[in-house]
Nucleic acid binder design. Structure first.
Length: 831
RNA sequence: GCCCGGGUGGCGGAAUGGCAGACGCUGAGGACUUAAAAUCCUCCGGGGAUUUUUCCUCAUGUGGGUUCGACUCCCACCCCGGGCACCA
């Protein structure tokens, strides 16, 4: 008797698959395609069970679709640029490339142990010039179209290291290397991509994703884009020479008669001019300095107390000519809207709090349509619902929507305002003052100014040997042979841009490159991409629900407008799988709770690991790692192996025979029925529900039933048993592919299971001859009767009434109503 | 504060308006064994009645509702997790 030896079996079949090039696929318009993709990993640390779960889900989908006859593309690659490589390099005095490549080799080795069905010929690594050159190419196209531009923007600056810090390098407001040094905000010129130019499309096209993407991801994106309809209104500044009018954005222009102040963001450009020569200049300057000192982190701002001060200046309300004081407030954001608001304390909670603290008036200009009217004397909180305008000059008496429309129209007609729709979404800042990323392909020439690097000179290569110290302006700026170049236009001395790109650029379009990874003439061939894209099923963590997916959607639309592709959305379906936890938290090196994938595979075999991650929880939920549960899975696979091993000799590859029921023995009928019923339900779990855990439970049940019929040598013909065992094997194949191949061979097949199609269940066999019908009286189960399947309503009720227990509940009462669910249940309602 | 998820035995979880707890884990008992491991068998939500066999009853976060029938649908509330958050 043979033993189940997972490691030997796994190595054997991985080799066969590779030799037969089973997972390689080419674009072929004659075949239906299926593109399944897992989010590409950042290669660092150990490959753990969290990764494995992600890839296992994708692999099951890929294998099911192959068995369904699709031309499946299932690629893998590396998100290889990024800060950790650079940090490691500084710390260990190695090169980021060496560190990264070592990690890739290691990751790849472990992935191979798992037999994932990747087409490795399509592998890409985003840190290779062959890849990042196309980041540069896209950047230049965006630059041509005005979608890439430079502006001053705030960064985290460590004065001690004299360097820019990434957000994750800011720890408790200090530098990660010495927390006692507070991080400063510094404005420097940075590159941006104009995601806002696509704000409306990014929002509207979400509807194309309804049904294919998780609802909550769509909601998160919608909130992130944050479209809001309103109006901008200009307030002229009184008594300050040369002061521009202050423009505010409001969604409630109908409350403008209730404005008791304008409030500017602390860094609003006009603030300096307003304060100069103001009657309260000295104290205002002091207060401003104090507010600017306050925490840099926006997260703290939300919790912080509202602070502000009066500038000593006034502006004129264009609707009624009223003079309203101009204040500065810490809760007003320069980045959103116009950086200035009109404060209407009676109808906005934030303004209400601010006005309460600083004793500003709170005039009521909207009254509820029903219920108790508001009164200034008793108002405890802002009333921000719609209602009816009051104390609003000619607009008094209008309901809110009408007032908004009319007042916006008036503002437009008189030229002091206009309707406007604004977005929370900001342009995408892609500049990083780092080495390990894609160089931004522009040069600065004293004569010609900013000059794009011509396509023919791409890629702009990273210098091979940078000085990485973590100090100073940026590693590229400190590398003269990189910085000093010739101007592409005039040939004179010029200076290269030394910023590199955010790594989200790399991951925004990598799945297009998979379609045509070797192309050295273009980022990809549009024909190939036209065949494979969009992604049919994208699988990854919820952590990327916003940024990665939003940037990918943006990139897609830009490429469409460049004429490279036809579609507008990169992924038709998205699945966000849960995390693998140990001790209640996600596995991470710092917590020391990592279960390494390799360690697991050596101990149990990768098929067992795959089965466990699929069985222990539904794929969208978090999964708590349990060594005991995985042993249960190992036990199950052992049982399957032994069952097939025990009978394979006798079956000797007997042709499958779904013997007709008329001549079948009792055992055979049970086997055939259970097998086909299981196949029916497993097919449904795979195709429409993604309930891998219950599919496995069903197969376990089937196995229990088969074993309950032992000895199978008696009363079961080889063909019938062959049928049952083959279907078990085929059902398991997408989940535990190595074991399934081995079983397939043991069952007498020389062809390799990978050539097999997913089997169809036989409805005739799946149907039971006899069924047990639950009998309820007034909705409570009081008995069960066995009847022939498909028995008519009258007969079933008659049979139910023959049951003594049922009669006991019904006797002496009148049956008012009866409900019959065929083959399942009878409910007798008695009065 | 707003927006999503979720709440079922000792545990992971199953049940697409129709027998709640499938399947697995843990635990208990038994078989095999000199013994152990492995394997196999039986039992395993609470309370009550019945010595048996079985029956009744409560139970899917809480309280209502719809329905012949609710873990499932509706309303209100509680708790847990996540996302966003002075967004004007």
């Amino acid at each position: 008797m043979a033993e189940y030896n997972p490691q030997a079996i796994e190595a054997k079949w991985q080799k066969r698959w590779e030799e037969a090039r089973v997972f390689e696929s080419e674009a072929d318009p004659a075949k239906p395609k299926y593109y399944v993709l897992e989010m590409l990993p950042y290669p660092s640390g150990t490959l753990h069970m969290g990764h494995m779960r992600n890839y296992t889900i994708g692999d099951v989908v890929a294998r099911v679709k192959r068995m369904r006859g699709f031309n499946v593309m299932h690629p893998m690659g590396w998100d290889a640029f990024g800060l950790p490589a650079e940090n490691a390099a500084i710390k260990n005095n190695t090169h980021p490339r060496v560190w990264t490549n070592n990690n890739i080799v290691e990751f790849k080795r472990v992935l191979h142990l798992f037999g994932f069905s990747y087409d490795w010929r399509r592998e890409i690594s985003t840190c290779e010039p062959e890849y990042y050159r196309w980041n540069q190419w896209f950047f230049l196209r965006m630059l041509e179209r005005g979608l890439a531009y430079r502006k001053k923007s705030r960064v985290n600056w460590c004065p001690k290291c004299a360097t820019v810090l990434a957000n994750e390098q800011v720890v408790n407001g200090g530098c990660w290397r010495h927390e006692d040094t507070p991080v400063e905000a510094k404005e420097i010129e940075q590159w941006f991509l104009k995601t806002t130019a696509y704000a409306d499309q990014l929002l509207d096209d979400l509807q194309l994703l309804e049904g294919g993407w998780p609802e909550r991801v769509i909601t998160m994106q919608r909130n992130w884009i944050g479209k809001s309809h309103g109006a901008k209104v200009k307030f002229a500044v009184a008594d300050v020479a040369g002061a521009e009018p202050i423009e505010v954005f409001t969604t409630r222009i109908d409350t403008v008669y209730g404005a008791s102040a304008l409030i500017l963001a602390p860094n609003y450009p006009l603030v300096g001019k307003l304060l100069a020569g103001s009657p309260v200049e000295a104290e205002a300057q002091a207060k401003l300095a104090q507010i600017r000192q306050m925490s840099v982190k926006t997260a703290d701002l939300a919790a912080a107390e509202k602070e502000g001060f009066f500038t000593g200046r006034y502006a004129t309300n264009p609707f009624n000519g009223a003079q309203v004081p101009i204040w500065v407030g810490n809760f007003v954001l320069l980045e959103y809207g116009t950086g200035a608001i009109m404060a209407v304390p009676a109808h906005d909670q934030r303004d209400f709090e601010f006005a309460s603290k600083y004793n500003l008036p709170k005039p009521i200009v909207v009254q509820p349509l029903a219920g108790e009217p508001l009164s200034a004397a008793t108002q405890q909180e802002a009333y921000s619902e719609f209602g009816k305008s009051v104390n609003s000059g000619p607009y008094s008496g209008l309901e809110t929507q009408a007032a908004i429309d009319k007042m916006a129209a008036e503002a437009e007609a008189k030229g002091f305002g206009r309707r406007e729709t604004i977005f929370r979404l900001k342009d995408w800042g892609i500049s990083r003052q780092r080495y390990w990323g894609t160089p931004i392909p522009v040069v600065y020439c004293a004569k010609d100014g900013l000059v794009p690097v011509p396509d023919a000179q791409l890629p702009v290569l990273l210098p091979a040997n940078p000085k990485l110290t973590g100090m100073g302006e940026s590693p590229l700026a400190a590398t003269p042979e990189f910085v000093n170049t010739a101007c592409p236009k005039c040939g004179g001395a010029a200076r290269r841009e030394t910023d590199t790109m955010d790594t989200f650029v790399d991951s925004s379009w990598y799945f297009y490159r998979y379609c045509d990874p070797q192309n050295d003439q273009a980022p990809y061939d549009s024909k190939k991409v036209g065949y494979w894209m969009p992604i049919d099923q994208y699988i990854g963590g919820i952590t990327h629900a916003i940024l990665h997916l939003l940037y990918s959607r943006f990139w897609c639309k830009v490429m469409r407008d460049l004429g490279l592709i036809q579609h507008s959305e990169p992924a038709a379906r998205l699945f966000t799988q849960g995390m693998v936890l140990k001790g209640g938290t996600a596995m991470s090196k710092s917590k020391g709770n990592v279960v390494g994938a390799e360690e697991m595979a050596r101990k149990f075999g990768c098929d067992t690991g795959r089965l466990y991650t699929l069985f222990a929880a539904p794929p969208e939920k978090d999964l708590e790692w349990s060594e005991q549960s995985i042993e249960g899975c190992a036990r199950f696979l052992n049982r399957v192996f032994r069952l097939v091993d025990r009978h394979a000799g006798r079956l000797a590859g007997a042709p499958r025979a779904a013997a007709d029921l008329a001549t079948a023995s009792e055992k055979e009928r049970i086997l055939l029925r259970k097998t086909h019923e299981t196949l029916r339900r497993v097919t449904n779990d795979f195709e429409t529900r993604w309930h891998f855990n219950s599919a496995i439970a069903l197969i376990m049940e089937l196995l229990n039933e088969i074993q309950a019929q032992e000895p199978l040598e008696e009363g079961v013909r080889p063909g019938v048993l062959q049928e049952a065992l083959e279907l078990v094997t085929l059902m398991l194949a997408p989940m535990v592919p190595h074991l399934a191949e081995e079983l397939w061979e043991m069952l007498g097949h020389g062809n390799g299971l990978w050539t097999e199609r997913w089997p169809d269940y036989n409805a005739e066999l799946a149907r039971a001859a006899e069924v047990e019908v639950a009998v309820q009286v007034n909705g409570r189960v009081r008995g069960r009767v066995r009847v022939a399947a498909g028995l008519g309503e009258e007969e079933v009720v008659a049979r139910a009434l023959e049951d003594a227990a049922i009669r006991g509940h019904v006797e002496g009462k009148r049956i008012v109503k009866r409900i019959v669910v065929p083959d399942k249940l009878v409910n007798l309602v008695v009065g």
